[in-house]
């Protein structure tokens, strides 16, 4: 009970501490908009031939004639109401666009994370348990090569191998084959939605589209995760309390799984935040390679079309996800390590 209270307090403090960071990102995106080349009012005018008068009117409507601090306050007020502006390319409010596309990105990222963890942890542990064995050398080679492989190249090579050569994967475009009907939307995660209504045909179709991009992204973070697991497991295995466990006759199973592994996972939990945020970054590349209809490809398309409101919205969304992920990691760490105290 005390543990939970302590975690709750810590969570609350962290949430408060992250507010300045979120505020900073909001101001940053605002300034970003101000230094961007071009006048937003011109973009928002009905067309390239819009008259000076019309532009002036839009400028007044958008509040662009006011001093910058006033504009900043207005902008922040809009943000507080969830108003992220309107996208020129889709004509929709940015918030709505992001909301519609977010599940696709999250589904991809989470699947990739689960895949990467379920491979990296056992590999790292096995390598640490048998130093200089075949598996250790294999894992080290994988780690060395893994961090060198650009996501976009590995994604394309996977497409070549599994779509063109082997034909094991469907056409690498989008989340679902056009001929498969989309399951009714509940969570937005296709795998979950399809399972909820028992539409296994759609589930398999979605999974077959998902596995290649998920594998690409998993490959990207597999190396750092396995490397970290191996290193921390090795360090823990040589620590004094493992020797104590051995000296007092605990079984090998208990020493490895309860004493070593739980301690070795602590540093892995701490780097999870960084791993997750690099995955959010890599999302942009993977979504482009696989034409995945997620938020990152949306922001990228907008960026290349000089449509800046979606880019701002995207950056803010990433910041929010990042804050939330770090809170989750904090809770996990607080549960895992009793030495963490508030503050």
């Amino acid at each position: 009970m005390a543990v939970l209270r302590s975690i709750g307090r810590r969570l609350w403090q962290r949430l408060l501490a992250s507010l300045p960071a979120l505020f900073g990102v909001a101001v940053f995106t605002f300034l970003l908009m101000r230094v961007l080349p071009g006048d937003p009012a011109v973009f928002f005018a009905s067309g390239p031939n819009a008259g000076q008068e019309e532009i002036e009117q839009i400028r007044r409507e958008m509040g662009l004639d006011k001093p910058i601090p006033v504009q900043l306050v207005n902008y922040l007020a809009d943000l507080a109401q969830g108003n992220l502006g309107r996208s020129m390319s889709t004509g929709q409010p940015v918030a709505a666009d992001l909301e519609r596309r977010l599940p696709a990105s999250l589904e991809l990222t989470l699947c990739a994370l689960i895949l990467a963890l379920s491979l990296a942890l056992p590999l790292g542990i096995l390598a640490a348990l048998r130093p200089n064995s075949l598996i250790d050398h294999g894992v080290r080679l994988l780690c060395t090569l893994g961090v060198c492989m650009p996501t976009f190249v590995s994604g394309l090579l996977l497409i070549f191998a599994f779509y063109y050569l082997l034909g094991w994967a469907p056409d690498p475009t989008g989340r679902l084959d056009v001929f498969v009907s989309t399951p009714p939307e509940v969570t937005g995660f296709l795998l979950v939605d399809a399972a909820l209504v028992g539409d296994w045909e759609a589930w398999i179709a979605a999974a077959s589209q998902l596995w290649l991009p998920a594998a690409t992204m998993a490959l990207f973070v597999l190396a750092p995760l396995a490397r970290m697991t191996r290193a921390s497991m090795l360090a823990v295995l040589t620590s004094d309390f493992i020797r104590t466990g051995e000296a007092l006759g605990l079984s090998r199973r208990r020493v490895v799984l309860v004493y070593a592994l739980r301690n070795a996972l602590l540093p892995v939990i701490t780097i999870m935040g960084i791993v997750f945020s690099t995955m959010l970054g890599a999302n942009v590349l993977v979504e482009k390679v696989f034409s995945w209809p997620g938020v990152a490809s949306y922001a990228l398309d907008a960026l290349l079309a000089s449509d800046y409101a979606p880019v701002q919205g995207f950056v803010l969304l990433m910041a929010m996800i990042f804050v939330m992920v770090n809170l989750v990691i904090d809770v996990l760490y607080g549960l895992a390590d009793p030495r963490v105290t508030v503050g």
Binding site: E246, A247, L248, Y259, N263, L266
Partner: peptide, 27 residues
């Protein structure tokens, strides 16, 4: 190990320098 494990702790045991490090910090 099969012979040693039942001995260690039950028939012969050991305590170390730096007791804080010799205990599992998260248990």
């Amino acid at each position: 190990r099969r012979i040693l494990q039942p001995l260690r702790g039950a028939a012969m045991s050991m305590i170390f320098q730096n007791p804080r490090a010799a205990l599992n910090p998260i248990r």
